[in-house]
Design a protein around this nucleic acid. Structure first.
Length: 550
RNA sequence: GCCCCCUUGGCUCAGCGGAUAGAGCGCCUGGCUACGGACCAGGAGAUCGGAGGUUCGAAUCCUCCAGGGGGUACCA
């Protein structure tokens, strides 16, 4: 609908001053939604842009444009200019009413758009190390990544969700050594944790089980068994959270194919590395980074650090032919964004295809106090703990409510509260209410559904509350699109909360089931069902359930 | 030191260069003989961290400053 109006504006012309030279309105993004004042459904600022070019006041320009608008689509009831210079468009009631039939017919396809045109997006998220349970930041990233994947899919992208598994290298070896130490300690033998080893209590708890699976007590066998175990635990946690991945990519595969070494050699050949202190450094400062990084250690084997491996991994993504790659990383990887991009650029790949986004920290708040999460055993909250405590719906909704680039306070008390204070219930309750009405309609003798086969007369929906509700429904596709395109899934919960509000207002004012007025009841039932469709679809995109009863 | 993120009512946050900056919580008033009161109506409460700049127009873009957070390993 937005496009239709845009089309009508771009095709109208403005006659300039003395020379009568027609000035065509620029075909830029000129339509914006009105904010604040209730002036119409769409507004445009073209008059401001043209004012200077033609040497007239914006209001005069707006007035002239309004008077010369031609080919106004039927969907627009009126075009007005404001004294500020804005030109406002109001969608006709008729066109709004028709939206209901469209929503009911299209269902979740109502928000389907083809702006992605089948382009392939690679979305990597969570990618936690298989050395411990998933934490709350992983839970945040999982909620966001999963919602983004659905949103991008909805607007026509082909999305691949990938989980990168660090199953190779130093931290894996360390994990095996830590386990061995724990095992020995459990047997009463004297054993020291290796330097920088994994202290977490979960390791002691799992040591015996892992040892049994490993079959032998070598660090190698133990770490392999532990990695396997943690990967399956991660998978379980994510399953319980409703998040699945299309692909689990193992770092060991990169090594098996010799890709990190190859990337390293190539960077050296191209002159992007240098020797210092016995190590090989990559000149990432040449590509805008704040510092250079060691890529090959000075140890006896000349082993590679994490960075060239990650560069190789990203090159592998490029080679797989994605049009765009999006990584969601935790705040602890902050400094690595620049070096990874630098490495990719040094190998000659286009950086504009790659977005590395940092999902910021999560502070758990209980009783108004920050929950302390030290690295010491048992003192950090895992993703499973969180989900167990607040439930999957509240966890996902809370994470998705907030913009991902700001650290967030997660109020545990609010998330568990089964009350009006809890934002996720507010939205779900709207859905439940519709379901309740629909149940009632079925049970009643009035035959709201079965009176006849004719479609309900949507022209009966003329109340302000009814039209306001349809207006909000009509706005849904744009919300989906902007959430997806801007990689800002939090816009959707904001919208859903607004939709719930408009519905609750409608509910307060407009009785849906009225035996005295069957035709109106049927029309309002259609509106209620359309609302249910959008609420359920929106919640579904967020991975949050839309309950029939609460 | 350097890099990144954040700063909007008492609190937690929306806000897409445009009109009178919006929600929720908390606080104060009201509202169920009806399809679920986990709801609705109304009120108080904001010099959008500060100073410059760009612009017809800035919470939004740019620069500087301040405060908060994170990072700055030959760990990942």
């Amino acid at each position: 609908m937005k496009n239709t109006i845009s089309g009508s504006i771009t095709s109208c012309s403005f006659v300039g001053k003395e020379d009568n030279r027609p000035v065509i309105v620029p075909q830029e993004e000129v339509i914006v939604s009105p904010s604040g004042v209730n002036v119409g459904d769409y507004t445009t600022n073209v008059a401001f842009q043209l004012a200077r070019r033609v040497g007239l006041a914006p209001q005069k320009v707006a007035e002239t444009i309004c008077k010369n608008v031609i080919d106004l689509p039927d969907s627009i009831e009126k075009v007005e200019f404001a004294k500020t210079g804005h030109i406002n468009f109001t969608i006709s009631a008729r066109s709004l009413q028709d939206q209901i039939a469209i929503i009911l017919e299209q269902g979740s396809e109502y928000s389907r758009q083809e702006v992605g045109a089948g382009k392939k997006i690679h979305l990597e998220f969570v990618s936690a190390n298989p050395t411990g349970p998933l934490n709350v930041v992983s839970a945040r990233a999982a909620a966001i990544g999963d919602a983004l994947a659905r949103l991008l899919g909805r607007i026509g992208y082909e999305v691949t969700k990938e989980y990168y598994v660090n199953d190779h290298g130093r931290q894996v070896r360390l994990l095996g050594e830590s386990l061995l130490a724990r095992l020995k300690q459990a047997r009463g033998e004297k054993a020291e944790m290796p330097e920088g080893g994994y202290q977490g209590e979960y390791l002691s708890e799992m040591a015996a089980e892992i040892a049994a699976a490993a079959g032998e007590d070598s660090p190698q066998a133990l770490s392999a068994a532990a990695v396997k175990k943690f990967i399956s635990l991660h998978r379980e946690s994510l399953d319980g959270y409703g998040v699945s991945f299309d692909n689990w990519f193992y770092e060991s595969k990169l090594h098996a194919d010799g890709l990190p070494q190859q990337a390293m050699d190539e960077l050296t050949e191209k002159g992007h590395t240098y020797q210092k202190d016995g190590a090989v450094w990559f000149k990432s400062t040449d590509f805008g980074d704040a510092q250079d990084w060691v890529f090959r250690r000075s140890d006896a084997e000349g082993s590679l650090t994490y960075h060239p491996i990650d560069v190789a991994y990203h090159r592998h993504k490029y080679q797989r032919g994605y049009d765009r790659m999006i990584d969601l990383w935790g705040p602890d990887h902050h400094a690595h964004v620049a070096v990874t991009k630098a490495g990719v650029a040094a190998l000659g790949y286009q950086l504009d295809k790659l977005d590395i986004i940092i999902v910021q920290q999560v502070n758990l708040i209980r009783g108004g106090q920050k929950v302390k999460m030290s690295k010491r055993a048992g003192e950090f909250e895992t993703m499973d703990d969180l989900v167990r405590e607040v439930g999957r719906d509240a966890a996902r909704y809370f994470f998705l409510m907030r913009s991902m680039d700001a650290p967030m306070d997660f109020d545990l008390d609010l998330a568990v509260a089964k009350s009006e204070k809890n934002p996720v219930y507010y939205v779900q309750y709207a859905h439940t209410r519709v379901c309740s009405i629909l149940r009632e309609a079925k049970e009643r003798e009035d035959g709201f559904y079965l009176r006849d086969n004719a479609a309900p007369d949507l022209r009966l929906l003329v109340e302000a509350a009814e039209l306001a509700l349809i207006r909000k429904l009509n706005y849904y596709p744009q919300t989906v699109r902007s959430s997806a395109e801007n990689l800002e899934p939090h816009r959707l919960p904001v919208y859903l909360a607004e939709l719930a509000t408009v519905f609750h207002k409608f509910y307060a004012v407009c009785r849906v089931l009225d035996s005295e007025n069957i035709e109106l009841s049927r029309a309002r039932l259609a509106l209620a069902r359309a609302t249910k469709t959008i609420l359920a679809d929106g919640l579904g995109l967020l991975g949050v359930s839309a309950p029939e009863r609460m």
